[in-house]
Design a binder for these strands. Structure first.
Lengths: 192, 192
DNA sequence: GAAAATTAACCGATCAGTAGGTAGGTATAT
DNA sequence: ATATACCTACCTACTGATCGGTTAATTTTC
């Protein structure tokens, strides 16, 4: 274990910055100021900006799915699982002082400017989320607490798209409570 | 009327570029090459990049709401109106050769880097869309073809967020048909 | 209606600033 | 003494923006 985890601090600063302004507006200077390190020193830990972003997506995915998994595997009701899942996104909006959105959501908007590896991992993040969501939806349908036509996978894509989109839309007129309202409405729609 | 509408061509090029890669990744060089004009000449038509983006949002909003209005005011069924509305977004994904998303959607992701005027107009774009959507939802509920709990405004925010989010998510794994599937699923959810 | 003045629309050259990245050196710890 | 972790100094490329100047069209004046 390192005493001062500079590598981690760089990732922290980069993530904070990207979630607020996007990857193209994030610069090495921003990171160097936030971490208290020289610009050139970042290159010691991450050869290029592309690599830094790729590493960031990896860490973010890992952490996020760890949280998701603990929700999905819990003994909570399907409805509560969905609500908890939505809270993972909602928490970002109120985190810190400024409005952050999902890292992979904002990177999805800048997809065309990212490396193929990054694009792949973002795509995987999307798909994996849909998969976990589909599990919960299926569980709820089996228990008779959820009701909707079509396959659960389409429904999962719908819900995930909604959450990603809602972060961007809601952030535009500062209001976390609007986000939870949307999530509540969504759950009502599929409740039996 | 000008013979060669350079100002319009600049806006065309800028919009195409932003819808694909975002505002921060769009440069004056990109525009100059696309239009066939010198970089400096762009400044004759738009003093700064911020002004250019502001003008772009204005034109985009005007055009978009013109299309929306013709749908809302038509004699179509509420369900068809929603389907047509969704097609406005879907068309962008398949437009040109590359995947474009809603201009205001992608700018919403980069909101923190835009001018206050631009932010205001993007916010207005969002609200106005929700308003039009709410009208259609109300109409459908009065006619008994739509059914959902809560106020139509929350439902409208949900639908709009879904559409904006779905563009980003679907673009990540190239598939226009997935977008229409989401829209169909959404309409099913509120159909009586 | 011809000459003169003005404006619109653009270009070439250049600016200061910042981007990401590199080279080489230094201090520390094992 | 060798790798780790960082620094200073610098580089090239490109960013949006400004400059003075050019050309063609339009408007004004007589």
């Amino acid at each position: 274990m390192r005493k001062t985890d500079t590598k981690g601090k760089i990732l922290d600063a980069a993530q904070d910055c990207i979630q607020r302004v996007g990857a193209n507006a994030m610069s090495y200077q921003d990171i160097s100021e936030a971490v208290g390190i020289q610009k050139a020193s970042i290159h010691y830990h991450f050869a290029t900006k592309e690599r830094l972003i790729e590493a960031l997506i990896d860490r973010y995915s890992e952490r996020f799915f760890s949280l998701v998994q603990s929700i999905v595997e819990s003994e909570l009701s399907p409805e509560t699982k969905l609500r908890r899942y939505g809270l993972l996104f909602e928490a970002m909006l109120s985190e810190g002082e400024r409005g952050k959105v999902c890292l992979c959501g904002i990177l999805g908007a800048e997809l065309a400017t990212l490396s193929p590896v990054a694009v792949d991992n973002i795509r995987r993040f999307f798909r994996e989320n849909e998969k976990r969501l589909a599990e919960v939806l299926d569980e709820g349908r089996r228990q008779g607490v959820f009701q909707f036509e079509g396959d659960s996978r389409s429904m999962a894509t719908l819900m995930f798209s909604l959450l990603e989109g809602a972060m961007l839309v809601v952030r535009a007129d500062e209001g976390t409570q609007r986000f939870s309202a949307i999530m509540r409405q969504m759950i009502k729609l599929i409740s039996a």
